[in-house]
Design a protein around this nucleic acid. Structure first.
Length: 729
RNA sequence: GGACGGUUAGCUCAGUGGUAGAGCAUCUCUUUGACGUAGAGAGGGUCAGAGGUUCAAAUCCUCUACCGUCCACCA
């Protein structure tokens, strides 16, 4: 006992982790009690974890360890996401760089194989990182959004929705990413503000109405001019049709009335380009206008655009048309304005709206559920409105509802090779949708793959074996808590609610605790491409996982962004050392204390579950305490109550801070200091020893969810069993 | 154009009605057997601004400014 080193050494953390993992208690099959479930938001399989993941992991591990100690049958299920677009893009980029080939050069099968190799290697890194952070997750149930069981879930979900008429195929103007060569959903479009020009012009000299646009090159695809029906200036033109010669092509322009036109903006008249604008497409649908496509998938002008610009890139075409307008005296005005450019979230390519045949989830279609009419939108709405799903912090509920209100049909098909293939086959004009391919020959499967969020949306139950009715699904679903970042509220949280309520008729989770982003000290996003990313493993090697966890959790309000500061980590490294040394003092001064019953040997018990709560046997009797020491423990007891309350409220920041404060400035600075004279006096020594031992052990338990490594390491000095499964005080 | 968050000590943040707090940083002292990755102590804020409610406002209400984020079909 005298040989306890002067400093806590975090180099021993991996051994502690091995001890936990081999104990089997990460697996709830070895635990009794009420189920408590957290599904890990699966990190992208091709990435490595950054400091934000470390934060997210810390929160979940705190919850998991707390509930495990509380006596719940606790499951934290880990996994990774195949992140179709991101992975597809990344691997193709490597392929081009290393072999000078794109995916079409090597073919679908070879490409997918390459991706899979890449993903396998990358997943291993993530698993290692999670262990380093201390994640007490059940590795035996680890899942991947693109493995066989998850693929079955995807096919099953697709078929059920298809049969219900909630998935349909149709030609719509969608967000096309020319860079990534795929369509993307509305949520994957990021608007960036850029300086641009607003051109005001007339199609031709005789045309009565001037229009304004930021994209002159699309105007060769115009079929109408829309005006507000109340606009007196243009009322007399409504319904008229004009044939115009415009920039080397002939246009047939009809003047139509549409309420969505703002008379105040520009000239109060909109040139309608149905094929290349989602809003114009909607106007066209209302007005029965036929779209004319003039731009292709590579953002080049096609034949239909006219001889002047055919074959040109959109950017060049814009310049050509602007000069044509100038030459013909049709350009009335050019203004510099701030405009919103739509870009693809993943490739940052400029979105080109195009009419395409795609698969969609219909969010408005009514269907019967429990004898009542409902829709997917309504299901999503009700899940939160009814309180079945609680969103924390509450302010995000408003954001959620706002999103649902503006929601349009979800484009789920992607023109990528890596991803879940759409379970639909064609033979001539016949369409066949099923979980398994058709038995006869002659069918060809749909080429498209599914939006990665389609499979992620099934995560809370696909991980538990659905559609198979295994015991896990019954035991652990709906899950208890989901703790993703607020930035994926729409992408993921909303869609999990959609899928779970539709497919299972129950919510996916009871609570969504949304956390904020970890930024650098200047308040900017960490960026891997700019080399400003931080590997949590490096930080952990320097300061220890406990220190990092505390630094990420303390001082961060629910749902708030935070700034990562290495000095803060250093501060909690010092705290870990403080715990170590306070424990060292207590252990050195209580060696001669006769505890009522010595701890049992770990190896003497065979059953895993019978080991739970053994630490209690070493607890001293309260009667042996003098009033002053008793009072100290009573005060500690009120801390226990307050910490417990904070954890129940997801107030990790305050719980951690209060524990820090009490341990350092009350226990170490005051209680231990005052105990020195008590220990020196035979009359008070035994009581002080009992008090110190009890107070220390109680605090180790309280601190364990936050700082699992140092607390377990200290515990192991005098116990044969694990702190991880001691009963919460 | 909507919605939300923020503005408190040099820095990072707590504090939601009752005489301004923590950590880090700064300064002074302490080589005392748990720990110098430490201990004792000190300095430092008109709580963004204006108005209002109240016996009492960092805290509640109104407005303003600035910073940040999300949503939105100004073509």
């Amino acid at each position: 006992m005298q040989n306890i080193p002067k400093h806590y050494n975090q180099a021993g953390e991996p051994n502690v982790y091995k001890l936990w993992e081999s104990s089997g208690y990460f697996n709830p099959d070895n635990l009794e009690g009420e189920p408590f479930t957290i599904m890990m938001p699966p990190p992208n399989a091709t990435g490595t974890l950054h400091i934000g993941h470390a934060f997210e992991t810390s929160i979940q591990d705190i919850l998991t360890r707390y509930h495990r100690m509380k006596g719940d049958k606790t499951l934290w299920l880990p996994g990774t996401d195949h992140a179709a677009i991101a992975t597809n893009t990344k691997v193709e980029k490597i392929l081009i760089k290393e072999e000078g080939k794109n995916r079409h050069d090597i073919g679908r099968e070879a490409f997918v194989k390459k991706v899979e190799e890449f993903v396998d290697a990358s997943r291993g890194t993530i698993q290692k990182q999670l262990r380093t952070i201390g994640a007490s997750a059940d590795w035996s149930r680890e899942a991947f959004t693109f493995d066989e069981p998850r693929n079955l879930a995807v096919r099953t979900a697709f078929k059920k929705m298809y049969d219900e008429g909630l998935i349909y195929r149709g030609t719509r103007v969608i967000n096309w990413d020319p860079k990534g060569q795929t369509s993307v959903s509305d949520d994957e479009v990021v608007h960036k503000t850029e300086k641009g020009q607003l051109y005001t012009f007339k199609y031709s000299k005789d045309f009565p109405i001037a229009i304004a646009t930021t994209r002159p090159e699309t105007k060769v695809g115009d079929v109408a001019v829309a005006v507000n029906p109340k606009d007196k200036r243009y009322k007399k033109f409504i319904g008229k049709e004009y044939e115009v010669e415009f920039a080397g092509t002939k246009l047939n322009i009809k003047i139509v009335a549409d309420d969505t036109v703002d008379p105040e903006f520009g000239t109060g008249a909109v040139g309608v380009t149905p094929a290349h604008s989602i809003t114009d497409y909607e106007i066209a649908l209302r007005q029965n206008l036929k779209p004319v496509q003039v731009i292709n998938e590579y953002a080049r002008m096609i034949e239909a655009a006219g001889a002047l610009v055919a074959g040109k890139k959109t950017k060049e075409a814009r310049e050509i048309i602007v000069s044509w307008l100038k030459e013909n005296g049709l350009l009335e005005k050019t203004e510099d304005i701030d405009m919103n450019i739509a870009t693809a979230e993943r490739s940052s390519g400029v979105i080109e709206p195009l009419p395409k045949l795609q698969w969609f989830v219909d969010v408005n279609k009514e269907f019967e559920r429990n004898g009542k009419k409902t829709s997917l939108k309504q299901l999503m709405h009700n899940a939160v409105r009814s309180g079945g799903v609680k969103i924390l912090p509450e302010r995000f509920e408003k954001v959620y509802f706002n999103w649902i209100d503006n929601l349009r049909d979800w484009n789920i098909s992607r023109q990528l090779w890596y991803g879940h293939r759409i379970p639909v086959w064609y033979k001539g004009t016949t369409i066949y949708c099923d979980i398994e391919p058709p038995k006869e020959d002659g069918w060809t499967q749909d080429e498209d793959t599914l939006d990665t969020w389609f499979s992620s949306a099934l995560w809370t139950f696909s991980t538990l074996g659905w559609p198979k009715e295994i015991q896990d699904l019954k035991t652990f679903h709906p899950t208890s808590v989901m703790a993703p970042g607020y930035e994926i509220l729409f992408f993921w949280v909303a869609r999990m609610i959609l899928m779970s309520t539709f497919l299972l008729g129950e919510v996916p989770f009871q609570v969504v605790y949304l956390h904020g982003m970890v930024r650098n000290i200047e308040g900017k996003k960490f960026s891997k491409s700019q080399g400003t990313g931080i590997d949590p493993v490096e930080v952990i090697q320097k300061y220890g996982a406990d220190a990092l966890r505390m630094a990420l959790v303390v001082g961060v309000g629910p749902g708030n962004d935070s700034k990562y500061d290495e000095m803060k980590v250093k501060g909690y490294r010092n705290f870990a050392n403080k715990i170590w040394n306070a424990a060292r003092f207590v252990l050195q001064n209580t060696e001669d204390y006769n505890s009522p019953q010595p701890p049992l040997k770990l190896r003497e018990t065979s059953s895993l579950t019978s080991r739970r709560g053994l630490g209690k046997k070493a607890q001293p009797k309260a009667g042996a305490l003098l009033p002053a020491d008793k009072k100290i423990l009573e005060e500690l007891d009120s801390l226990v109550k307050s910490i417990t309350k904070q954890l129940e409220k997801f107030d990790f920041a305050h719980a951690a801070e209060d524990l820090y404060h009490y341990f350092w400035h009350t226990f170490a600075d005051k209680i231990i200091e005052e105990s020195k004279s008590k220990l020196a006096d035979e009359k008070t020594r035994a009581s002080a020893q009992l008090m110190l031992k009890t107070a220390l052990e109680t605090q180790l338990k309280l601190l364990h969810p936050f700082m699992p490594f140092v607390t377990e390491t200290v515990w192991q000095l005098t116990h044969e069993d694990l702190l991880m499964i001691q009963k919460w005080p």
